[in-house]
């Protein structure tokens, strides 16, 4: 059994070096190796979207990517959205629209919404519901989440 692998990647704009076992998912690496627990685990099989991160700008489930696969790539997590100047407009919209209840799915939804609104700030309700179909929320019935994303889209135009 060989030892862990060295991986170099860019996470939230910063170069990061870490060691991980090939069997460790990106989600495990983020949470357990790098201590970035904002990305949540809900199912570990790609069916809830709680672990959504941006991978080279594209949303993916970090539980379905191996840590070793991010070698040389760029990852953005929920921790990378707010800046010293304040919250990202999507984060602000989630707060103002009461779009979170327990909050466990919230990071995944916000990152997924960023993946959409960066490209399509005009996305309508149908498009938003389709885009977020891979993110489960059990508290809200999605109503206020969809409204928050519509609202954020307005602000990001």
């Amino acid at each position: 059994m060989p030892g862990p692998t060295h991986v170099q990647a860019t996470i939230n704009g910063e170069e990061v070096n870490f060691l991980c076992e090939p069997r460790q998912s990106l989600l495990e690496v983020l949470r357990d190796v790098l201590g970035m627990t904002g990305t949540k685990e809900g199912c570990n099989d790609g069916n809830c979207g709680a672990c959504t991160v941006l991978f080279d700008g594209r949303i993916i489930d970090s539980c379905l990517v191996l840590g070793v696969e991010i070698q040389g790539r760029e990852v953005t997590t929920i921790e990378g959205l707010a800046t010293a100047d304040g919250l990202h407009p999507i984060q602000q919209a989630f707060l103002e629209n009461a779009a979170l209840q327990c909050g466990i799915c919230t990071p995944g939804f916000i990152v997924a919404a960023k993946g959409l609104l960066d490209e399509e700030p005009d996305a309508d309700e149908g498009r938003i519901r389709h885009w977020l179909a891979g993110n489960l929320c059990r508290c809200t019935g999605y109503d206020k989440i969809v409204r928050a994303v519509l609202d954020a889209g307005e602000k990001m135009k």
Binding site: G46, G49, R58, I59, I60, D61, L64, A133, G134
Partner: peptide, 9 residues
């Protein structure tokens, strides 16, 4: 196939 996240991979 899957959701948008899955289709990214």
């Amino acid at each position: 196939i899957g959701g948008i996240q899955i289709q990214g991979r």
